[in-house]
Each structure stands twice: as structure tokens, then as C-alpha cells.
Design a protein around this nucleic acid. Structure first.
Lengths: 180, 180
DNA sequence: TGTCGTTTTTGATCTAGATCAAAAGAAACG
DNA sequence: CGTTTCTTTTGATCTAGATCAAAAACGACA
């Protein structure tokens, strides 16, 4: 999800069309019901994305520095999003409006290819998560998460991680203590 | 996933670049480990897509007449697929090779837009399935499935549907009998 | 129309993980 | 610092759904 940062020239070109935004810990960046208007390149900090269902909040994504955040369900379709995104630390990100994105797609070489790859990567990531929840135990999912995102454990409250992993906080806590 | 069939002219143009293929019940169309070379427009019949993990087969998709089937993980990336697709009835489909698809993208008006929408639809569908498995009970998932795909129940063995829904066949059978 | 293989149902039991409740630890803030 | 609030852990209990096993139902085909 971060290959664009591998191309410094492209990033520089993009930055000319982006605004730098600052969020404090706890700030809501976009709210459920909004139409997502911006795509974010996160410079520093961490954001959780969640939605509400059956009274609970379910966290479906964490995005941190050097990653891209956008509401795929809303940004590309123009429909209101069901997701809320919130800064979990002091967070800085470059934002790109949809208009500017369209301009970029028209004028910046390699951007359309990047867009397609972005979608395929997002899709593949989701497939993996789906499979993990269908075919792995809570303990295996935790280990898998640790292998991929161990850094998040110290930056994100346990309750958010447990809902991301599809289990209760108590269960995650017990799994952790079992492994010492 | 089937909006292309809503445009008869586009479909006609595409057909000139496609081959009609026939499969008997039980035939394997593409096997895990293959590199997916074709995109299919299903004319008639039904296909299940599954993968193997921890000794089990998990069904992740059904595709039927007027729908499109392709291994997104493989067709667009060129990597071997983990999925096997199998005809569950006598099935006819138009197939389009990757070379021909590239030609079509270059020469057929509206095709690139369709491609992007296809990806977004596929993504949204997966998001929904993910959410259903995280936040719904087995019974609710079954009801949800019935609302969307009740026709499949008579065409597809129960065991495939139960693995698609992330539950055991016995559980699905009990849920069904409970509802009479 | 009976036999064999496949698919579905039913029954008994077990278990991972949920739920409810409360204690223990950290962090924020006057 | 001490108090208050948020986060994590621990304990006791409960339950949806898995597992194992076998019977019943269905379908294809000789």
C-alpha cells in the first residue's frame, strides 16, 4: 500500500498538489456519513478506521506513516462512507482532493498504473484477512498479526487491535499472557 | 459484477475477441498453481471457486450465468493462483485471453472505466462478506445468503455453501431444519 | 426397480471464545 | 504527587458452533 513512497520524484510532483494537515490525538479525520473528499498520504502518526454495527465499533484498518488512507467505498464512488477515521497519535498527512487527483491522473505519468495496483493490493490484503478469519484460530490470527504489524502493539490500544482481529479484548489479553 | 451484460453493443464487440468454451459437470477450469490466462463471461451454468488450507477446501466464490469470473490475484499480476475453479453444471462461457483484453482496453470505448468499476465492485463485495463473518451469527449469515442468492441453494451442494458461509455443513443443515 | 455412491440430516458430546464482573495497572491532569 | 479516568488483566461461567459418528434420503445408472 505504500509503493508510491518508493518513487521520490512522483511524490514530489504530487506534493505540489497536496495540503499538509495536522491532527491531534483523538481527532476525527472523516466521519461516517461524510462523502470522502480526500486521499491522505500519512507523513507521521497513526490512524484507525472503524465502523459501527450492532452497537459495537469494529476496527477494520490501521494506517500509519508512509501509507495511504482513503475511503475506497466513498472516495471513488461519491457515496457517503460508513467508516470513521481517527488519529491515535499526533498525526500529519498530505491530503489530495478528488479534483486534484483527477488532474494528477491526467497529467502525471505512471499515475493510472499506480491506481490500478493500489486497488489490486487493497483487494489482496482484504482476501488475506478474510481467509485468516475463516481458517485460523484466534491465537493464530494474533501470531499472524504480530509477524506483520508487531510495531502497532505498542502504539494502539488493545481493544482496537482485538476488534481488528475479530475477537474480544479479554481473549486477546489471555492469548498474550499465555505466550509470556 | 455483471454490468457489462447491460451493454449489448459492448458485449457484441467483445465476443469477436472471445472463444466459446464448454465444460461438463465436475470439470476443472483452472487449477491452483496455474497462472490465470483467461477472463470468463459465463453464458450458462455455474462455477465454484475454492482453495485448500489446513487440509480443507474453502469455497470463496460462486459464479453463474451473466457473471464474470477471473482470478484477480493471478490474471492481473501474472502470479500463480491459489484458487481452483470447477464447473458444477454443464457450463458454457466466453473466454478472453489477457492479450485480447489488453487489445480491448486500448480499442474499445468505455472498457477502462468498466475495469475500474469491476475492481471496486469486487472489493465492495468482499468488504461485505468480511463484515458479515465478523459481526453476524451463522444463522444471520445464512439468512443474508438466502436473501441474496436463494437460487444457488438448489444448484449447489450444501457443503460448498456452508464453507462459503464459514460454517460446517452440519451447522447449516441444522439451521435449515430449524426454519422448516 | 434395486443397488451403490453421494449428499443431507440427526444425535451426542466437546471446546474455543464470548460474556459478565471485578481487580490491578497505567496514564492524564489538577 | 494524589486522585480520577482509561486500559489491561484475571476469574467464573455460559454458549454457538465444531467434531465425531451413524442413520436417512436422494440420485444415477445397470
Amino acid at each position: 500500500m505504500n509503493s508510491i513512497f518508493g518513487s521520490p520524484e512522483l511524490l514530489e510532483t504530487l506534493k505540489e498538489h497536496m495540503q499538509l494537515e495536522q491532527y491531534a490525538k483523538g481527532d476525527i479525520i472523516e466521519n461516517a456519513g461524510d462523502v470522502s473528499k480526500r486521499l491522505f498520504f500519512i507523513k507521521k502518526g497513526i490512524i484507525r478506521v472503524f465502523y459501527r454495527t450492532a452497537g459495537r465499533e469494529i476496527c477494520c484498518h490501521f494506517a500509519k506513516e508512509n501509507e495511504i488512507l482513503t475511503g475506497i467505498d466513498s472516495f471513488f464512488t461519491g457515496k457517503p462512507t460508513i467508516y470513521t477515521s481517527q488519529a491515535l497519535e499526533t498525526t500529519e498527512c498530505y491530503s489530495l482532493t478528488k479534483n486534484n487527483l483527477d488532474w494528477v491522473f491526467d497529467h502525471v505519468e505512471g499515475m493510472d498504473r499506480y491506481g490500478r495496483i493500489f486497488m489490486i493490493e487493497a483487494y489482496s490484503e482484504l482476501v488475506e484477512r478474510y481467509n485468516s478469519i475463516v481458517s485460523m484460530s484466534a491465537e493464530e490470527r494474533y501470531e499472524d498479526f504480530m509477524n506483520k504489524h508487531s510495531d502497532l502493539l505498542n502504539r494502539v490500544p488493545l481493544g482496537y487491535i482485538s476488534s481488528y482481529l475479530g475477537m474480544k479484548q479479554e481473549t486477546l489479553s489471555r492469548i498474550r499472557s499465555k505466550q509470556n
